[in-house]
Amino acid sequence: LLKKANAPIILAGGGTFWSDSSSELKQLVDNSGIPFYTTPMTRGIVSDDHPFSYPAARSSAFRETDFVLVLGTRFNWIMTYGNRINPDAKIIQVDIFEEEIAHNREVTLGIVGDCKNVINQLNEELLKQNIKSNQWETWRNNLSKLEKSRLEKVKPLEESSQSPIHPLRLCKELREVMDPSSIISIDGNEILHYGIQSIPCYKPRHSINSGPTGCMGVGLPYAIGAKIA
């Protein structure tokens, strides 16, 4: 299935987070050359500054992909029940819970197992099948162009001197001073939408936000808790 794909992506969810498979997933991305995306919980499982990360092109990647490796995430309402993904795409879903396989979205192949173990097996198989990272260079270049184009469009807002400050300007200022090891706590409502798109995460468990309900007021106590921990 993967060898026949022209536009594959990896979608990493909470299963990769809980199985502590950051290094294994990075190896998979490095060796395969497949662009990767994450669920909110999994931000930083592979660093956002990885060369195969194109977060600003996420919507286009989901629409245009023809193969998705889904690792440890449900097709629930947070994932719009899988409806954002190209309806003709081949999907391989890996989940430790059998009942989550093909729930809400049909899949081509379901694998019941721990993400860390399955990713290790995939890494071994990549070597056996001699799959190289340059196989999808054209696909990555397309996503890279989209990424640059969309980032260019928001530059005027990032550099705006309007008052009160625009959220994108705030996010830009934070990016310029934050350390890669910083833990970012993002509050709810409007800043949540801008923050999760504009503030990068470089390590697992280093991005905290108000979650799918967008509750306001949690940013500060979350930050205090992270600092104490």
Results as ranks from 00 to 15, higher is better:
A56F: 14
I34R: 06
H103I: 13
Y37G: 04
I78K: 12
N134R: 14
A57I: 08
V154R: 11
I96F: 05
Y81R: 07
E106Y: 02
I131F: 08
H103K: 10
R150M: 15
F36T: 05
N120L: 13
W77Y: 13
R105H: 01
A56T: 13
N86S: 12
Q121E: 15
S149R: 10
G110P: 01
A56Q: 13
P51L: 05
V68R: 05
T39Y: 05
P40S: 15
S32M: 09
R84C: 11
P167I: 14
F67V: 00
K148I: 14
R63F: 10
L127Q: 12
P164Y: 01
L71W: 12
D66H: 06
N130P: 05
I101H: 00
E147R: 13
G72N: 04
N86W: 08
D95V: 00
S53C: 10
T42R: 03
V94N: 01
I85V: 08
R105P: 00
T138M: 14
V70S: 02
S60E: 15
I119Q: 03
W136I: 06
K148W: 15
L126D: 07
W136H: 06
G44A: 04
L127K: 11
N130F: 07
H166G: 00
T39L: 06
T42E: 06
Y54W: 10
I85M: 04
N83R: 15
K145S: 09
Y81P: 05
F97N: 08
A89P: 06
F62E: 08
F36I: 04
L146M: 15
V112E: 01
S160H: 04
P55T: 11
L127S: 09
I96S: 01
P55C: 09
S53A: 10
I92A: 00
D114W: 00
S32W: 07
C115R: 02
A61V: 11
T65G: 11
S53F: 14
T138I: 12
F75W: 06
S133K: 12
Q93K: 01
G33Y: 02
S149I: 11
Y54I: 06
T73Y: 00
S160K: 04
D49G: 14
T38I: 09
E100F: 03
I91W: 00
N134S: 13
N134M: 15
S133F: 14
P55E: 11
P40A: 12
F97A: 15
H166L: 08
K145P: 11
L71S: 04
E98T: 01
S32A: 12
N141D: 15
D66F: 03
L168D: 09
P51H: 08
F52L: 14
P167W: 09
R74W: 00
N134G: 12
D88L: 10
L69G: 05
V112D: 03
A57L: 09
V107R: 00
L168Q: 15
K128T: 08
E100Q: 00
Q93R: 04
K128C: 14
G72E: 00
S59R: 14
I131P: 09
D30N: 08
N130Y: 11
M79G: 08
K155C: 13
R43L: 08
E98K: 02
P35A: 06
E124N: 10
T80R: 11
E147W: 15
P55L: 12
I34F: 14
F67D: 05
L109Q: 14
S161C: 11
E100T: 01
